[in-house]
Structure formats: C-alpha cells, structure tokens
Nucleic acid binder design. Sequence first.
DNA 1: GCCGTCGTACTTTTT
DNA 2: GTACGACGGC
Length: 639
Amino acid sequence: MDFNQEQLAAIQSDARNLLVLAGAGTGKTRTIIGRAKWLVSQGVTPERIAIVTFTRRAANEIRSRLRQSAGTEAAKSSTGTFHHLCLRIMSARRQWFGFENLTVMDRDDQTHLMRLVRGELVGKNAIVPQAAQLISYYSYARNTNQPAIDYLRKFSELDESTQQTVLKIFAAYRMRKQSRAYMDYDDILHRFAKVLHDDATVRKRVCSRYDHVLVDEMQDTNPLQWLILQSFAEYCHLFCVGDDAQSIYAFRGADFRNVHSFDERLENSQTLKLEQNYRSTQPILDVANWLLAQSPLGYEKHLRAARGDGVCPQLLDFDSDLEEAEWIAETIKQRRLEGAAWSEHMILCRTAYSARPIEAELIREKIPYRFIGGMGLLQMAHVRDLLSVLRILVNYRDELAWVRYLTLWPKIGEVTAARIVERLAASETAEAAMQELAQALSKRPEIVELPAKLQALGDQPAAAIQLARELLEPILERKYDQWDQRKRDLVLLERLAENHRSISGFLETYTLDPISATEVDNDNQPDEGIVTLITVHSAKGTECEVCFVPAAQPGNYPHTRSLSDPDAIEEERRVLYVALTRAKDELYISRHLSRGYGRTSWNAAAGAHYFLGSLPAKLVQTKSRFAATQDWWDDGVIG
DNA sequence: GCCGTCGTACTTTTT
DNA sequence: GTACGACGGC
C-alpha cells in the first residue's frame, strides 16, 4: 500500500493520542488499516489493538481488508461497533459488570414497551407525548449523559407537571426493562461506561488489555461514547479519525464540536489533517466545496482532487418521483448495456421512504440491487412473529415476545396474553414459567408444545427457524396477504442463521445492527455486481463510480422537519455533503416537483432554506429529462 | 374478551 | 401503501 506524506505521518505517529481530521475521500479507512498494520509490524500484538466503528458494515470492511492485505495475524485485533465491543467484554467478564443474560431490545421493542408503560400510567392522555417521542427523549438524554429532566426543560415544550409525568413514565420503563431482563442500545453503553467510570479496578483490568484503540467516524461519537474512550485513554493510545463536515448523527447525541475539543480533553494529544482527496474528480468536489462554503459554520475545508478533472455533475428536473425513478433505472440499464457493471451504481436517498418508488422501478426493470438502510429484515411483522418463539427460549421473561407469540393463536388476544405473561414473568426459572404456561393453557397444548419442540433442538438457530416456520405456517398464512412473498423472508432468515451457533448470539447480532432482506438475498450471489440503493446516513464511508442523488428538491435538503432549528439545518447540509462526496466519476443530482398523488411536497419556508437554490450554473450541467433521451429524432435502423 | 373492519394520519436519519 | 386506533358484532 502506498501512502502520501500526510497519511504516513498519521500512521507512524508516536503521539499518545492522535486525532486525524480526514476530509471525504482522503483515505480514512486506508489510514486506519495502515495504522493497524504498522503497529503490528512494530511488534504490537494484534489482540492488544481494538478498532471501533459505528456500523457492522464498516467493521466487516476493515476486518476483511486487514485479512486481505496483512494476513490473519493483523485481523486478530478486536474490530467491532461500540455496542458490540462493550457487549462482548461485558459478557466475557460478567462478574465485573453485574451482567446476566439479557435480551437486547431494538427500536420497535423499546417503543412497544414504552407504549405499554405509558398506557398503564396515563392512559390516553393526549398531552403526554407518544411512546416513540418519549423513547427519543429518553435515549437522547442518556446518550448525552444528562439527567432526563434537564433535557426536557431545555428542549421540550412540555409544562412542568407533564415533565414530571414523563419522568415517572421513564422510571416505570426502566423498572420494566429490569424485571423483564431487557437492555436497550443505550443500556449497553451506559452500563459499560458507568462501571468503567466508577470502578478503578475494573477500569484497569478492562482497559489495560489493550495498548491501542483506533476509532473510526470520531465526529459521530456522543458524550456516552466519549466517556468510554476517556477510560481507555488512561491505559491506551487513542487513534481517532473523523471529519467534522460529515457529522450527521446529532439526533443520536453526537456533537461534531467534540473533535474540536479533542486536545483540550485529552492530554498529550495531537491533531493531523488529511486533505488530498483520492476518490472523486474535481468537478464533483467543486459542488461539494461550494455547498460547504455556503455554511455559516466555516469548516475551513476545500477538497482537492488528486485525480484532477473529470465529467461535470448533472442537475436534472422531473415532473414526478415516478419519472425520476424511471429515468434512473433507464440510465443504469443503458450504462450496463455499454459495459458498466451493475455495482458501479449507487442511489443515495435522503429517507428510506423516498427510496420506494425507485426500488419499485428497479424491480420492474429487473435490475439486481440491494437496499441498505431501509426496513430491516428483523423489523418485518411476519419475521418478528416467528422470532418471538426464539426469543422466548432465550429469555422466558421476554414479555413482548410472549405477547406476540400468544396472540398469534386464535382466541388469544392482548388481554388474555397479558394475563398469562404476568404469571410467566413472575416465575423464578424458565422451567417454572413453562409449567405455568402449560397450566394456563391446558386446553391448548399446541401452544405449549411448539416452544418445547424448539427447545429440544438446542442452540441451532437455523434448525429452530425451519421448524418454527413449518409449525407456524398455517397461522401466518391466514394472517398475511401475499404469503408467498413473505415466506421468502423467513427462508432468508434461515439462511442468515446458518452462520450462527447460538440462538441468542444470532438474535443479538442482528438486533444490534439490522440487515435488510435484499442484503441477505444477495449475500451468496457471485459478485458480478448489483446496484446499491442506500440512505445517505448508511452510505457514509462508502463510495461508488456513478452516484445518483434523487429527490434533491426543497423540503428534502434541508428536510422540512429540521427547518425550525439552525443547527439541524446545518446538519442537513452535511447530509447532502456526504451524499455528493460518495461519487468517484459521475454525479447525477435530480429533483422532482410532485410525488404520489400530485401533491407538492414543499412550502415557502423549505424553499427559503433550500441548499441548491443558489447553485452556480457553471458547477453543473443542467438537463431537461428530454435532453437525456434525444433519440426521438433517431433515424437509424431499428432492431 | 376476541376479532374483523373501517377511517385516519403519517412517514428523517440509526446503534 | 401501512399501521394504529376506534367501533361494534359475536
């Protein structure tokens, strides 16, 4: 691997703590991998290096690139997301963390449990925010490590007494999690951070197992994650890579200003910059640079393309989202005919929702694709139905799974299920719970037998899924329309499970970082290539030859929901910046006027803040959709 | 209490 | 297009 001087300086730095401010496409991942390899070459044991990323995809990428270029030795480092690493360490050292077998809750579980608790406490009180909103308050407060009340006072518009009610709901939610052996995403980080912070002995035992901690996407760390890093900093060298202009996770508590205070917070630290962009051609970077230069925040960023000049980005307008989708699919197909691989195309959507017409078009045109960032496989109703049985086996106190499983059966509704679950959850052991169940449902043996049969399979997730699918099929078939389609998802699920040796491990992995159905579907296919349809948030860290940024009209950049908050608007600018800087060779920005049933999708306020409203004409080539298909006047031979 | 049906509103981003 | 709440029949 060749590195430029800036990269080499970072890789070989002997600073105790190093922050590398690396602009888009400047070789962030390369530098992290280079650092790991260099450390190993200097005699550091791979096991004493931890590499922390934000997504499983990034972790996988680093792991496989390490294996490819440095052999299995360097790949022995612990690579994973914050959540994975914390969980792995906590379950390996249970006694230090007071850790028992807990079920990880995903977003849906959290919302359901919160809805339950909220209902019990305040009924249909319309003044108290809905469960989803409550979860987002609760989670944000914890990720920013501040008391919930402080956050509510500062950022919610709730009156004092409602705030107190909300606090009571939070307390009840916490108790409920505890009694049902649940942990949510934040519990993982919080528990880990707290023990490390409070207990110097454990801190030493845990952190001194590593010499080097390498952190990717540093700009997206939130205060809770910072706390964890500070504990490690006592015993390890930190090597953090990030870009303040690509911080797009403020809603999760990240504050990109964190990277600016890096050297104030950590002694013996140094900051380096990577500014040479190797990914894109200059015309693409010109648009991105222009966008950032319009920001009042002053990023002091000006990406320079090592590759030099290239094709000018195009800006296209369409009447509707459907026409836009058609054009994208057509263009990709055309390029494919001209010899391009499917995999050279990426479509970057602001929202998973807005990707749907495009997905429909890709399906219609039979273009192979994967969709990253949309509805995960494990979030689909029928998949959750099936998984509820597996969850029961892992944690007999899993209230949400029990209710889900029991209400699948005829004549058992929410009320009956809740009554049964109350008895089960009070049991001391799983065996006692199963006996309770048998007693409560003595007239419905089939309901009790199903989990027992699965239990007999032991820790074989794939076999368990297969059996559960067979046994539940009559019920599910009746419950859902288009069962044949949905059934495919369960087959995919089974395939996904084949790589896992324990049910709990399988559930944990994909709860922590969900995977979409199309990703699994394409997993085993030969890599002749597929098109990537992806949300911008999921696309950070990736790149592609030809990128489409559809729906780039007012109301989406910035998104209408963020117009009231100047900070949020600037975050939206960074989202668009991330989207634009994914492109290596060609960039197609497109907009549409109406969607769905002819509604106009933005208002005057959205127009006033619109980022591309003042885009200089010389930066892009503007084309009408007809110009792109000018062969209307084609007079060549047909066929 | 269960369950089917109808109306409504809502769709940012994710570990 | 879907997900949830309200309603009423059984």
